[in-house]
């Protein structure tokens, strides 16, 4: 018989290195004579899309489009150290460094422009749609390229180097008390599963994932992280296990170490909640790791909801499900 159940899982995750370890990211920014810009960071884009996020941050600040920004990363001869691409830290930490750097380059640009527009304070200057000019007076603006080029002729350049350090403190080694991470990301997921009571096979039919991201800097990438995380969570809950014999890996191959395929993945509905984190770039927090956390719990709880067995050891293989079902039936008979 096939039985269905629904399970819920919640999670939290402290991002960054944590525990007082210096969590520093750095970035260099240069605004070019034609009004485009380059940002250099050590932050490696491992496929999650951090380079796009940095382009968006710089473009936002300079009133440009993302394609006007060149992002170069992960080359030790050219880029400053921005820490590791791990701990869900690049959007938040290096994002903050990039934001500080572009704002620093922008601040000298604004001061220069204020002089040009006879504006007593740079507060009165804005960057928008590739132009720089006086706030509230659309007749007084020039293409950003013209102003930057003119500035070069006068010996002024708009370049910057900045660093950003996340806050955390070491915990007390005796009591574990302290503030080891900041910020924390939260999330919850539900899974609907179908358990075949004859074969023990669990099929995940649907996962709904809701994650707290502070601010979604790029909703497409948020959805991509969530679907990827859920799928790794399904593998963790149901399929993946490195089998060891005296320290030797018995299944060092994709034919024997199984990861989810397109057919193992259910309908995934991804939602995000935006509750700005004041210390994050534009309110953003990281999502990379949190996206996979609740899945395992949602699935294990759904299995219990479906067939009334509590799996306490993952992966929840068909053998474990059948064994648990047999034990449960045995118990029922005894009573």
């Amino acid at each position: 018989m096939k039985k269905r159940g629904i399970g819920l899982g919640c999670s939290w995750y402290g991002t960054g290195y944590g525990n007082g370890f210096p969590d520093v990211s750095s970035a260099f920014v240069e605004i070019h004579d034609d009004g485009s810009a380059t940002v250099l960071t050590g932050a490696v884009d491992v496929g999650q899309g951090s380079n796009s996020i940095f382009a968006q941050i710089v473009a936002e600040e300079l009133g440009l489009e993302a394609q006007d920004i060149c992002v170069y990363s992960g080359d030790t001869d050219a880029t400053p150290d921005s820490g590791t691409t791990a701990a869900t830290r690049q959007t938040y930490n290096t994002g903050n460094a990039v934001l500080k750097a572009v704002r620093q380059a922008k601040s000298s640009l604004l001061v220069y422009a204020a002089r040009e527009f006879s504006c007593p304070t740079s507060e009165g200057i804005e960057l928008k749609e590739g132009y720089i000019g006086v706030k509230g007076d659309p007749s007084r603006r020039v293409p950003l390229a013209d102003l930057v080029f003119q500035a070069r002729l006068r010996g002024e350049r708009f370049i910057s180097a900045e660093s950003s350090t996340a806050r955390s403190t070491p915990v007390d080694p005796e009591t574990g008390q302290g503030a080891p991470y900041w910020p924390y990301s939260f999330g919850c997921q539900s899974a609907e599963v179908e358990v075949d009571t004859e074969t023990g096979v669990v099929q995940v039919l649907k996962v709904v994932a809701v994650h707290d991201v502070g601010k979604a800097l790029n909703p497409t990438q948020v959805e991509g992280q969530i679907a990827g995380g859920v799928t790794q969570g399904i593998g963790y809950a149901l399929l993946e296990e490195l089998e060891l014999n005296e320290g030797k890996i018995k299944n060092p191959a994709f034919s024997s170490y199984l990861i989810p395929t397109a057919l193992d993945v259910p309908n995934i509905e991804a939602f995000f909640v935006e509750d700005a984190e004041s210390t994050g770039p534009f309110g953003a927090k990281g999502l990379g790791e949190p996206a996979m956390l609740p899945t395992v719990a949602a699935i294990i709880n759904a299995i219990d909801d479906a067939v009334g067995v509590r799996i306490t050891s993952i992966p929840a293989t068909p053998e474990k499900i059948l064994k648990a079902l047999a034990e449960k039936n045995g118990e029922v008979k005894k009573h």
């Binding site: 991509g224 799928t231 989810p260």
Partner: peptide, 11 residues
């Protein structure tokens, strides 16, 4: 027949 470890296949 094509494995992907990042996207979860959704997109």
């Amino acid at each position: 027949g094509n494995l992907c470890r990042c996207t979860g296949y959704d997109k």
